[in-house]
Design a protein around this nucleic acid. Structure first.
Lengths: 239, 239
DNA sequence: TGTACATCAGTGAACGCGCGTTCACTGATGTAC
DNA sequence: TGTACATCAGTGAACGCGCGTTCACTGATGTAC
């Protein structure tokens, strides 16, 4: 494997072979290091070991590259949310909360994707492909919300399933953006973001008529809601 | 008032008189126009009608200027949230929801501040002043949550007031960042962000044991929760 | 009130730098026959 | 199987540009006496 250390150019010859992929990966690394603002076309080329003119064979400009990254991010996001949802197994509420955790996990482990998707200034509808990818990702949350709506007690008023999905999305996004991001802008929190979001969703579901302890047999997960102002956690009394 | 149209330099003489303010305002305008990424120190100087070296008398570098803007943003944010809260008048829940609306209004009407505060890459604790300003703003939400906690029915389990405040913050922030932002990254929504957030908060409060229709006499505001999947709104049936 | 002087808040020219972009070019690859 | 040729995917040099930053400087302002 000594060729790994050789000069890249000599190794690969004149043609790169997979430059488009390499540029996307390079840009992702750069965004992770320096933020979406401080990544340049030229830098991506350099990191891919290629002349500054080469990227123009694959992307019209920096924006198109950024938009491609956002789209790819939404595709991976969708895959991870869908895996977490697992078609509602073993039960809807458990699966639902796994989706919330997956949302936070993605924000934390893929800050570069996350900022390209939500904070880089790329408009959500800048590209048909990007728009569609974003909607497919939201589709996972929406499908879960519809399953949940079908399960909700009929005597409690509730909004349309679409609205419920938007509620869940905004809660997850709010917690993720403020407290679970993978970069320097993450705010300190006297608990884990997962705990925060889980409690939030549980209270919300209770507001929709779901009982909190829906699986009395397995008390392990999720943890019960804290029920007063004197929690065991690190933040002490709240008043 | 014809002097308004004169050459700035001639008008003001050698000294600007209020350059620091002018630079902050210029930077804010530039961020609003081109996003937090595409604003430069030199550009701010130009817009203030001053040589590119002048800003160095007031800010160490671009980051310090950006951080000052974020801090000022949090100060205005706090003022608006506090005005909306109005110490809980006329009743806690009404005032509480006014705070949510004020959050959205700020995100929409002050996109430049909002992105400097939350999305510019400036760390929340990059400056003692910035950190303190951010905490004072959150303090308004926290005080409101504590009032609310004191009012909550005692037989329903609820988290500490601090956690409630964080829940409200994340809901507001999620809705604002996704759907109520003032720039091109705003996502389309089949309802107003205010409706979305209000319904979300109402369901959450119901989950804490609050009854939704707490003011039967004045039915005007806020609107009741939609209670099935066939709303009158523009998004049609959700399934 | 006047004057001398220190300090403040700007100037403007200069610099090195890296970026985005273009251009004619060329090596590598694929394909028709 | 070999060969001619078209196309693809890269090179590298060059350009103009605006940025951040520095420097010695200077006009304006404030203050001590």
């Amino acid at each position: 494997m000594s060729w790994r250390k050789e000069e890249r150019r000599a190794e690969r010859g004149y043609h790169h072979g997979n430059l488009k992929e390499a540029l996307l990966q390079a840009a992702l690394d750069l965004i992770a290091q320096k933020g979406a603002a401080g990544f340049t076309f030229a830098d991506a080329a350099r990191m891919a070991g290629v002349s500054p003119a080469a990227p123009y064979r694959h992307f019209r400009d920096r924006d198109e590259l950024l938009s491609s990254i956002a789209q790819r991010g939404f595709e991976q996001f969708e895959a991870q949310l869908a895996a977490a949802w697992d078609d509602g197994r073993p039960d809807t509420v458990t699966a639902f909360e796994r989706v919330g955790k997956a949302y936070l996990a993605f924000a934390r482990t893929e800050p570069a994707f996350y900022s390209a998707m939500f904070e880089s200034g790329v408009a959500a509808d800048s590209t048909a492909g990007l728009l569609a990818a974003g909607e497919r990702a939201f589709g996972v949350i929406r499908a879960a919300a519809e399953r949940l709506a079908a399960l909700a007690p009929p005597n409690v008023p509730r909004p349309p399933a679409l609205m419920m999905a938007l509620h869940i999305w905004s809660m997850s996004h709010g917690v993720a953006s403020l407290f679970a991001r993978g970069d320097a802008a993450r705010r300190k929190l006297p608990m884990s973001p997962e705990e925060l979001l889980e409690a939030e969703v549980l209270i919300y579901l209770r507001g929709l008529g779901f009982t909190t302890d829906r699986r009395p047999a397995s008390a392990a997960e999720p943890p019960p809601l804290p029920d007063d102002d004197k929690p065991a956690g690190p933040w002490g009394r709240s008043k």
